[in-house]
Amino acid sequence: DRIFMTRTEALEFLLKAHQTAVDKIGHPSHKQTPADHAAIEALDRLLLDVRARRVDQFQINASAAQIIVTD
């Protein structure tokens, strides 16, 4: 599946995904793992790359739809 978004929409989408990941590892019942921190770092890099126009398409994980940034 493909989803087309403007750059602004894609950045909002990534910010929400980032916040969800941060909230998940901050929850008291969740045991933090290196994979959790790696996922947040990957989202940080992706946010910067989309914002800087170095990336025009991405996929958060293998089961997610491919996001295509349109400007």
Rank of each mutant, 00 (worst) to 15 (best):
D1R: 00
D1P: 09
R2I: 15
R2E: 06
R2Y: 14
I3K: 05
I3F: 05
F4H: 10
F4T: 07
F4A: 05
M5Y: 02
M5L: 09
M5I: 03
M5H: 01
M5S: 00
T6V: 02
T6S: 10
T6Y: 02
R7V: 11
R7G: 02
T8K: 14
T8R: 11
T8E: 12
T8L: 12
E9N: 04
E9G: 04
A10W: 01
A10Y: 01
A10C: 03
L11S: 02
L11Y: 07
L11V: 09
L11G: 01
L11R: 00
E12R: 08
E12S: 15
E12T: 05
E12Y: 06
F13W: 11
F13H: 07
F13R: 03
F13I: 09
L14G: 00
L14V: 03
L14Y: 00
L14I: 10
L14D: 00
L15D: 06
L15N: 12
K16E: 11
K16C: 07
K16N: 11
K16M: 11
A17F: 07
A17N: 03
A17S: 05
A17R: 03
H18Y: 15
Q19F: 05
T20Y: 09
A21K: 04
A21Y: 11
A21D: 01
A21L: 15
V22Y: 04
D23H: 08
D23Q: 11
D23M: 04
K24N: 10
K24I: 10
K24E: 10
I25S: 07
I25N: 05
I25T: 06
G26F: 14
H27Q: 13
H27M: 13
H27I: 08
P28K: 09
P28N: 08
P28T: 08
S29Y: 04
S29K: 10
H30V: 08
H30T: 08
H30D: 08
H30Q: 07
K31W: 09
Q32K: 13
Q32H: 14
T33A: 08
T33D: 11
P34C: 05
A35I: 06
A35N: 10
A35T: 08
D36S: 06
D36W: 06
D36G: 04
D36L: 15
H37L: 15
H37Y: 13
H37G: 07
A38P: 04
A38R: 10
A38I: 11
A39L: 15
A39E: 13
A39Q: 13
I40L: 12
I40G: 02
I40R: 03
A42G: 05
A42T: 13
D44V: 15
R45G: 05
L46W: 02
L47Q: 03
L47E: 02
L48T: 14
L48A: 15
D49L: 11
D49A: 08
V50P: 00
V50W: 01
V50A: 01
V50N: 00
V50F: 03
R51L: 13
R51Q: 14
A52C: 09
A52N: 12
A52I: 06
A52T: 12
R53G: 15
R53W: 03
R54G: 03
R54L: 12
R54S: 05
V55P: 01
V55C: 05
D56R: 09
D56N: 15
Q57F: 11
Q57T: 13
Q57C: 11
F58T: 00
Q59W: 11
Q59A: 05
Q59C: 04
Q59E: 05
I60H: 04
N61M: 10
N61A: 12
N61C: 06
A62C: 06
A62I: 10
A62W: 04
A62E: 13
S63Y: 10
S63R: 11
A64D: 13
A64F: 11
A64V: 08
A64K: 08
A65C: 07
A65E: 08
A65R: 06
Q66G: 04
Q66M: 15
Q66V: 15
I67C: 02
I67E: 00
I67S: 01
I67V: 10
I67G: 01
I68K: 04
I68T: 06
V69D: 03
T70M: 14
T70K: 11
T70A: 06
T70C: 11
T70F: 09
T70H: 10
T70P: 02
T70R: 12
D71G: 07
D71C: 05
D71S: 06
D71W: 02
D71R: 06
